[in-house]
């Protein structure tokens, strides 16, 4: 089963993301912020990372930079799911190594479509 690391400081968003992806057949590992995600990413590999941007301790773009510096996450698809929609932030995400930028709120069916498209 392919696994996805879902990162968001909002419990309700994590619940909805996890439900959506589990229904689509994925194993979901939840993390409540970037620092938690980094800890959970170490020692395991996942097939995709889906992360919020604005979180305490470590934000999404910093998480992307940290993951990209790890050989096992050099090519793992990383999607940023956030309320932020400015071109400036999207550029920062792209430069950090993110695979895509999804603006909240998300539609569950559309999220699964995108995940299927980019997951490895």
């Amino acid at each position: 089963m392919q696994s996805i690391l879902a990162v968001d400081d909002s419990k309700s968003i994590r619940q909805m993301v996890a439900f959506t992806l589990k229904c689509a057949g994925y194993d979901v590992i939840e993390a409540e912020d970037g620092a938690d995600a980094l800890q959970k990413a170490k020692g395991r590999t996942v097939n995709l990372v889906l992360t919020d941007q604005n979180m305490p301790n470590l934000d999404g773009i910093s998480l992307v930079k940290n993951l990209r510096s790890m050989p096992s996450y050099a090519t793992t698809p990383i999607l940023i799911l956030t309320t932020e929609s400015s071109d400036e932030m999207k550029s920062k995400g792209r430069e950090a190594g993110a695979t895509g930028w999804l603006v909240k709120p998300f539609d569950p069916n559309r999220l699964v479509e995108i995940v299927k498209k980019v997951i490895r």
């Binding site: 604005n54 309320t83 932020e84 929609s85 400015s86 999207k90 995400g93 792209r94 993110a98 695979t99 895509g100 930028w101 999804l102 603006v103 909240k104 709120p105 998300f106 539609d107 559309r110 995108i114 498209k117 980019v118």
Partner: peptide, 16 residues
Amino acid sequence: EVVAQKDITVGDIELF
């Protein structure tokens, strides 16, 4: 400003 949304319409998706 981190939230630009004015309603609950599904957000845009951009793959890089």
